[in-house]
Amino acid sequence: MSNRFFEYLLRLGDDRLVLGHRLSEWCGHGPILEEDIAMANIALDLIGQANLLLLKAASVENAGRDADALAYLRDAREYRNALIAELPRGDFAFTIARQFLFSAWALRQWEALASCRDADLAGIAARAVKESRYHVRHSAEWLVRLGDGTEESHARAQDALDELWRYTGELFLTDAIERELAHEGLAADPSAFRSAWQKDVDDVVARATLRLPAVEHWQQGGRTGLHTEHLGRMLAEMQVLPRTYPGARW
């Protein structure tokens, strides 16, 4: 069980760490000061969740690695996040659309995990549910504003959805690891909340006067370490200090 659970915790943690990092790239460069604050806030929540998840993963692994070792000393091929999290931040519409699609999914996932059989993960989930509710509300409000704002903002928001939508299928992939863990009450089976998520998305997309594109092929690979080219560069930047000064404490 412990190997599978470790793997699952990495997936949960890496999603949040990578997306939180992408969001943190906005800090100081947002379209209005209020959004600098809001995006930093969401980034902080996500990195905070990642920290707890990787701490838990480290303790489940029990191999002498701590959360920082997992974050800073794994290569891209060892990262387990969904691809949608690692795509470059793009413009504000891309950031908002991604945040909405991800957070609406993450909220459902956390709600399911709040009754997880592992007390630590259930505790993390209970707190994260509250944070995620805010993330969904904030990103949904902006997506509606952008979609139903000006011609330009509508076009940008539509472009973002067109680009992002093909990465959402991966969020609902399950493999033997997740199925077995879900059966044991340790993981959330995403197929259980796919239709609820789809409805959440459809409602907001409709209010935003946007439409979801048709998808020929769902992009996937993150859960097995097959990432886009973007993640390696992101990690090269993120990991530079611990990699350059092995063994140093910060």
């Binding site: 943190s24 930093a40 990195i47 990787l54 930047e237 200090l241 611990p242």
Partner: peptide
């Protein structure tokens, strides 16, 4: 922020810069 050397430092710095925006 994107090169902070530990998760704790990353959160600390992000929170600090957020405070400055505030």
């Amino acid at each position: 922020i994107t090169r902070a050397p530990s998760l704790r430092r990353k959160m600390g710095l992000l929170a600090k810069v957020q405070d400055e925006a505030g």
